[in-house]
Amino acid sequence: MISIKAILKAWKFVFIVMIFVLGINETQAQSGSDLKINEILVYNDSSCVDDFGMHSSWIEIFNTAYNSVEIGGLYLTNDLSNPKKYYIPKGDPRTIIPPRGFIVFWADSRPTRGILHLNFGLQHSKTLALFDANGRTMIDVVKTDKDHKPNITYGRIEDGGTAMGFLDKNTPSASNDTRVKVTGAQIFSEMDPYGGGLAIIAMSVVFSALTILYFVFKNASRIIALDFKKLFSRKKKIDIAVTPKEDIPGEVCAAIAMALYSYRTTLHDIENTVLTIKKISKTYSPWSSKIYGLRKLPRGN
């Protein structure tokens, strides 16, 4: 008979394995989900040219992650009823998008021109989507039925962001955000030329961090010393007979110690009735033979 405990244990095991498996699937999908369709140019009259010198529509995909992501094995399509329209081949180093990097595909319906040339165009498309390797999970989609103008790109205002719109500049393989960025150091330089502000902020933070440490460890010994078992256990109304403390005479202590010693020394861990069968023989081997010893030099004639 299988006990209930055993069934529960088995279920626990299955549950843990399921979480693990689901976790792995989630992790695998996560790398693909880091990709975003970042910028598209539908009508390319005078913008950048492809490796064949042609002005073609293009699609820029951005890797939002801080690790490289392989786009090979995923699908691009302009038809949601056919998610596997263009398979991005695996194994080409160009399909590995560096951290926070970009890849540009040419939507020119000329797949024979290389793996970066798609088998569809954008000019008569309504959507553009990126599908996961299973061909079912949509990673990202962009509507392309807007009123697109020649040489004006449409995409995310900030790389990987949610806000979409027509962009001021064409930036294939580069950040969409072309505004002048002010670094933290520049802001401090302008607003805090003598460093007083930073000193106040930083010293406050250092003091806060170490003050928290102080308060925590000031009380840590008290918290550790608490007997939680006693604190949370139900109080049982049992009368425990408290024996009054008495001084035990030295002779009694000596007698107890002697008794304990005698008891321990007479204890047997292993009974001494074990039979030992030992084969005593000398097996011959040429390796151990003195006759064939290598140190024995052949006698000269």
Binding site: S189, G195, A199, A202, V206, L210, F215, F217
Partner: peptide, 26 residues
């Protein structure tokens, strides 16, 4: 440090040199 946690605050105060030098460098 653990036996006398208030000493940790001295470690915070001594960081003043960092920010004084920051101001002087500016």
């Amino acid at each position: 440090l653990l036996s006398n946690p208030r000493l940790v605050l001295i470690g915070a105060a001594a960081q003043l040199g960092i920010f004084a030098a920051y101001g002087a460098a500016l």
